[in-house]
Design a protein around this nucleic acid. Structure first.
Lengths: 144, 144
DNA sequence: CCGCAGTAGATGCACACGCAACGTTCTAAG
DNA sequence: CTTAGAACGTTGCGTGTGCATCTACTGCGG
């Protein structure tokens, strides 16, 4: 069945909302810490990972980048000293991206801005129940 | 107040869902009609507009592109004969992007694929009430 | 009528990203 | 053990996009 124009509009608004929120988060991070959102997300994922390290492939999927895209991004972060690459003993094909001390400091610096942004540009705009509803809907969408 | 990790996850999933759905729509359109999603969206907006025309600036905002980005995209579409540019009499600075007959045919061809994609990759995955809820939440997010 | 800030669209430039291809390494089937 | 196929990360290449800037035009205030 063809989507109604309202259903269509919902998809458009979803796209718009995502772009709008991401844009504001990026603006905040850039102004406050000169850190692009994509870079921050890589650092954040690493900071959450055991051993502050993640395989390149795994990391790429988590931050929604292609493997080649992540290669270049990690190149940049490595040049800034925020991340290093380490071999993986269990698989000689593999590499770990590892958060350096400097990278850890940087991500801890930036995190309050990021969290405040999510609060202000997203969560605060919704009613309390909405977050749970939203989570359920997203689960239905099969997004892991 | 700091977002909880669940609240954080909701933002991540939202991002992921948007990227996933847009990716599938683009795949569908590319396979079936060799038409990138961004191009389709420009054509669709024009096909919805009175006189099949929209000012460049206006169109740029609607499809979430910068003015320069839209300039290039319309260049491409014009080269393919899907869109033409026409002067605006009321404002000599302005240009209309106008859907050509060929562009109209193309968008009508591709629309079933697009609509089916939104149905299958998005709406079908939700329960009936969710769409309305979703629309309300998006309205709260201040997205026009 | 003039001047000046603001807006529309185009362009030079830089850059981030994806795809295809490549070398290396792992894994499974024989 | 050998070999075919897949997986990992990187690289060359093409391309789509944004920012800053430019020109042309508008419209407001003096």
């Amino acid at each position: 069945m063809r989507p109604t124009s309202e259903e269509l509009a919902v998809w458009r608004l979803l796209h718009r909302a995502q772009v709008q929120i991401a844009g504001r988060l990026e603006d905040d991070l850039m102004k406050a810490h000169d850190l692009p959102l994509a870079s921050y997300e890589v650092l954040l994922r690493l900071s959450e990972a055991p051993g502050l390290r993640l395989r390149m492939n795994d990391l790429a999927h988590r931050v929604l980048l292609s493997r080649s895209g992540l290669t270049r991004l990690v190149d940049r972060l490595q040049r800034e000293g925020l991340v290093s690459r380490e071999a993986c003993e269990s698989d000689a094909r593999g590499l770990y991206a590892v958060l350096t001390a400097q990278g850890k400091a940087r991500v801890e610096e930036a995190t309050p801005v990021y969290l405040r942004g999510i609060r202000r540009h997203f969560l605060d705009l919704l009613d309390p129940d909405d977050v749970g509803r939203c989570r359920e809907m997203l689960a239905k969408l099969g997004v892991v």
